[in-house]
Amino acid sequence: MKSIIQIKNFNFFYGESQALHDVTLDFNENQISALIGPSGCGKTTLLRCINRMNDLIDDTRSEGNITIHEKNIYLAEVDPVEVRRKVGMVFQKPNPFPKTIWDNIVWGAKINGYTGNLEELVESTLTRTALWDEVKDKLHTNALFLSGGQQQRLCIARAIAIKPDVILMDEPTSALDPVATARIESLITELKKRYSIVIVTHNMQQAGRISDCTSFLLNGVVVEHGRTKEIFLNPKEKKTEEYISGEFG
């Protein structure tokens, strides 16, 4: 299994307060890696460091390296905009643009210089996200008319339209009902054939169901990292065991 993202001795600060302490992690290609941990443990912060979204927040600072495909994305000469093109992101709350379904998908590709056939792009991304049959007749209606689950799948479609290597997902199903959640989960499992996925989740069962490896964070520190099965069935650390069995969190 080839490693795609390496996080090495990574520290992250919001002003004076340190959110991540010396994080060192490896994520593999074509796998689903889950980040779990109680609220405020830094898992979303870590996720947003992988595509440098945290650069948009004033008064933040980071130390250490994150390499993707052996390229350090925290070098001074690396433009975060270029990083985000290669590392797509899906957010907690479905956030399609208040535009048509069509525009939602083609916009990201267009601004990144896609010159190919737009119809093919729309059809292939929507097919890959299992949305094509549901929306093919209303591509030019506003995306906000879709249901929450459909909106989230559209956001995933929008993310893969820019041809990323990695897709980051920040609790993508926390705002959805169980049926929509199940559909997204099966979609994510399908997507890992082509993309490497890092997913933050609050839902222990979800991490257990879909991820290949899992990292448990607590107060900005990686407590344990390993294959999901091992973490869930026989965790090495006591804290991990307590968290997974629901004793705190």
Binding site: N51, M53, L56, V81, E82, R84, R85, K86, G88, M89, F91, K93, N95, P96, F97, P98, W107, G108, I111, N112, C155, R158, A159, I162
Partner: peptide, 25 residues
């Protein structure tokens, strides 16, 4: 913010975000 984040998350530059999403909104 979610509109800005969505735009930046797709690899948009600041100006593309301002011009295509913030100002129209």
């Amino acid at each position: 913010t979610y509109i800005k984040q969505a735009s930046y998350g797709l690899g948009a530059t600041k100006w593309q975000t301002v011009w295509h999403h913030i100002i129209p909104y």
